[in-house]
Design a binder for these strands. Structure first.
Lengths: 178, 178
DNA sequence: GCCTCCATGTAATTGGTTACATGATTCT
DNA sequence: AGAATCATGTAACCAATTACATGGAGGC
């Protein structure tokens, strides 16, 4: 079994629910997926070639403008399920917005507060956008069930972070000299 | 002004509260910081050389075993404050544990539930560890104020995700066939 | 003398971003 | 005819991980 990267497994997961072209896969990343794992076409096309070389996906029909549709193979399905059921997710945190908080003491108190206010707005806006998106999926609907469950995590995460920012701003005001 | 990477800015931030050797900086990443941005010594030493070349830090005294202490320069302080006050944090999500949720429909329902239970435990454990760590810092203490505020974000985040996992497990049981 | 920890570095590889490059089809 | 969108690819660069490599100092 060749090692499959996270991106490769995501592509397998997307192709698991039907054939797609590289262009369509690229667009899939723009919507919900981009909030948890971003990828651009320049990364996707070479990865598709790799997956095909490993026999995990195969070319199906070619469309107009040189578009090429791919489908997952049985070996690809095995690899996807192996990833999901038998490996642990790697936690590789890259939260720049969060790391900055450790160093806000470097700034004047009002500048630190400005940063926190920006974060509060940023997370609150995301909650609003997620809530709108939630209209389109439901846990009772087999087709969107897992999208809805993932979305719920996003909503709770962004809401918790907006609340945290509001709390932090309050603490700053409560103890201005400390 | 030469462009400073996020890692470079973190090193500047750490050196902002006193001189450190590369070894000590590496250890600093192991504690709290590792939960939001990880880095190993093989990345830190070259980055220190780069920062020194750009005049943002300077070598102070050399210690035993070839250890080399660094201090931030006025230019380094300017760069740090510029990063904190005048640039926007880049959101580059790499949440593998979250992206997997989108594809849990590929698994049998009990396997999907196992994954969610694993996540619930993972996040609940982190809450417990964070709570223990919170004993050592307080918002009223100028030395640990921002550590405590960052920690609060971590606690709220992990608690929200543990709650989400419990909710998701409940939803699966409520609508087993959907 | 041996083990552990302190302390620093480089090399090879993988993963990811930005920029460059090209051409077909559809819509107005 | 021109613009927008569809569609795919490569090259250069930067960031990050894993592995390789070395040696000093202190404790037993």
């Amino acid at each position: 079994m060749t090692k499959v990267s996270v991106l490769g497994n995501i592509l397998l997961g997307l192709l698991g629910s039907g054939g797609r072209t590289g262009y369509e896969l690229t667009r899939d990343f723009d919507v919900s997926l981009a909030n948890v794992w971003a990828a651009s076409h320049s990364q996707i096309y070479p990865e598709l070639a790799k997956l095909e070389g490993a026999g995990l996906i195969r070319k199906t029909e070619a469309g107009p403008r040189g578009s090429q549709r791919y489908a997952i193979t049985p070996a690809g399905n095995d690899a996807l399920r192996h990833w999901l059921a038998e490996t642990q997710p790697v936690d590789n945190p890259r939260a720049e917005w969060m790391v900055r908080v450790f160093f806000l003491g470097t700034l004047a108190p009002n500048q630190a507060a400005t940063y926190l206010e920006g974060q509060q707005k940023y997370h609150a806006d995301k909650v609003a956008r997620y809530r709108a998106f939630a209209e389109h999926c439901a846990v009772d609907d087999p087709d969107s069930r897992w999208d809805r469950i993932a979305l719920e995590a996003g909503m709770r995460f962004e809401a918790a972070m907006a609340d945290w920012a509001a709390w932090a701003i309050g603490e700053l005001q409560r103890t201005p000299k400390a």
